[in-house]
């Protein structure tokens, strides 16, 4: 399962209302570390398909959601389960920290 995009408009249905845990990647096109993280998140979305969904939220286009979750640095990844934040990872430090975060949702 590849990653998909989420916006301010469908955040509620795609993330908060999701039955499976969702990892949200807050990112932007101009952010170098976000670009490095992208292929790794794609890889993880394959490895964890059906267990944890991975969605991407462009912070430039979706300021409401980024503001609501207090994003002050990107990439920030937040894991939601049952509509609630259960963990977050600030910055890109390789695959390990993303995977550790996703495991919290299993």
């Amino acid at each position: 399962m590849a990653t998909s995009n989420v916006t301010d408009t469908d955040f509620q249905t795609q993330v908060i209302g999701s039955k499976t845990p969702v990892l949200v990647d807050f990112w932007a096109t101009w952010c170098g570390p976000c670009r490095m993280a992208a292929p790794i998140l794609e890889e993880l979305s394959e490895e964890y398909k059906d267990k944890v969904a991975i969605v991407k939220l462009d912070v430039d286009a979706n300021p409401v959601t980024s503001g609501k979750y207090g994003i002050l640095s990107i990439p920030t990844t937040i894991l939601f389960k049952g509509g609630k934040e259960i963990g977050r990872q600030v910055g890109f430090s390789g695959k390990g920290p993303f995977e550790d975060l996703m495991k919290k949702g299993l």
């Binding site: 952010c31 430039d60 994003i71 002050l72 640095s73 990107i74």
Partner: peptide, 17 residues
């Protein structure tokens, strides 16, 4: 407070300020 207002990458994080 790294990632919570403290950063080493203005090009990454400046828009949040």
């Amino acid at each position: 407070l790294i990632g919570r207002g403290i950063s080493s990458c203005a090009p990454c994080d400046a828009p949040f300020f």
